[in-house]
C-alpha cells in the first residue's frame, strides 16, 4: 500500500499570506520522514497540505504539485475527501470521538466508506487494527467502553488504529508524541518502526532525538525572517543531517545554537 510522494515547487498560501515557499522533495515509500524546525516555520502546514487538511482553514490554497504514485493531489477533478481517505493523519493531541466506543472509533473511517461489512469482518478488522497499534492487549476486554476513558498514550494509539484501519497509503503524523509521557512516546516510536513496513510515514516533531531515533530521512524547515515564508532548507538522510549537515542553519539548529 505504501506510496511514493513527489512534491515540486509547492507554495502554500493562507489567503494572500505566503506561508511556505518552494518546497521540492521526494519521499520514499516504506520509510519514515521526519520534519523538524522551529515553531511557525510551516512544517505542520506542509504536512497538512499532503492530505489537503490545511484547506479546512478558509482561504488556504497551494500552488505547485504534490504527486502520489503518479496522481496529482491537487488535480482539478480530485476531491479532497478522496485524498484524505488514502492519506491518514494522526494529530498532536489524541482525538478519539468522545461519544463513540473504542470499537466504533476504530471502524469510524471504514463506516464512512459505506461498504456493507459483515459483523465478523468488522470484528477482525478492529482486532487487526488495534493489534497493529499495539493496543489490543490493553483494551480487548472493554471495546464497548468510551475511547475517551483511556490514558493519553492509549488514546493516541487508538487514533493510530483508527487511521490504519482504512489501510491508507500514507500516514501523516503531526507531533504525535508531544502530549505524551516518555513511556508512551517510546511505545509510539516502536509502533512507527513496525508501521513503516506497510506505510509511508511522514512525521512532524519538535523532538530532535525522536527524529534521529525513528526516521530514515529528515527535512529541516526554517524561516528567513519574521513575516517571511518558511522554506525547506535541507532534506537528507537522517544520519547525514545529524552528523554532517550541508547547511549552516541546520547545524546551528540541531546543535542548539539557535531555536
Amino acid at each position: 500500500m505504501a506510496k511514493r510522494i513527489d512534491v515540486s515547487d509547492l507554495d502554500i498560501y493562507y489567503s494572500s499570506f505566503l506561508a511556505v515557499q518552494g518546497v521540492n522533495v521526494s519521499i520514499e515509500p516504506r520509510s519514515i520522514t521526519a520534519l523538524i524546525g522551529p515553531s511557525g516555520c510551516g512544517k505542520s502546514t506542509f504536512l497538512r497540505s499532503l492530505n489537503r487538511m490545511h484547506e479546512v482553514i478558509p482561504g488556504a490554497r497551494v500552488e505547485g504539485k504534490v504527486v502520489i504514485d503518479g496522481q496529482d493531489l491537487y488535480g482539478a477533478e480530485v476531491d479532497p475527501v478522496d485524498v484524505r481517505r488514502q492519506i491518514g493523519m494522526v494529530f498532536q493531541r489524541p482525538n478519539p470521538f468522545p461519544t463513540m466506543s473504542i470499537y466504533d472509533n476504530v471502524i469510524a473511517g471504514v463506516r464512512l466508506n459505506s461498504t456493507r461489512m459483515k459483523k465478523s469482518d468488522m470484528d477482525d478488522l478492529v482486532e487487526r487494527s488495534l493489534k497493529g497499534a499495539n493496543l489490543w492487549a490493553e483494551v480487548k476486554d472493554r471495546l464497548n467502553r468510551p475511547g475517551s476513558g483511556l490514558s493519553g498514550g492509549q488514546q493516541q494509539r487508538l487514533c493510530i488504529a483508527r487511521a490504519i484501519a482504512v489501510e491508507p497509503e500514507v500516514l501523516l503524523m503531526d507531533e504525535p508524541c508531544s502530549a505524551l509521557d516518555p513511556i508512551s512516546t517510546l511505545a509510539i516510536e516502536d509502533l512507527m518502526t513496525e508501521l513503516k513496513e506497510r506505510f509511508t510515514i511522514v512525521i512532524v516533531t519538535h523532538n530532535m532525538q525522536q527524529a534521529a531515533r525513528v526516521s530514515t530521512a529528515t527535512g529541516f524547515f526554517n524561516l528567513s525572517g519574521v513575516g517571511q515564508p518558511g522554506r525547506l532548507v535541507e532534506f537528507n538522510p537522517t544520519e547525514k543531517i545529524f552528523s554532517n549537515p550541508e547547511e549552516k542553519a541546520t547545524e546551528d539548529y540541531i546543535s542548539g545554537r539557535f531555536g
Binding site: M89, L112, N113, R162
Partner: peptide, 17 residues
C-alpha cells in the same frame, strides 16, 4: 471542538459526515 472535527475530516469524511 476543532480536534474532533479534524479527526473526522482526516478520515475522509464529507462535511455532512
Amino acid at each position: 471542538p476543532a480536534l474532533h472535527r479534524e479527526a473526522a475530516l482526516a478520515l475522509g469524511a464529507t462535511r455532512w459526515e
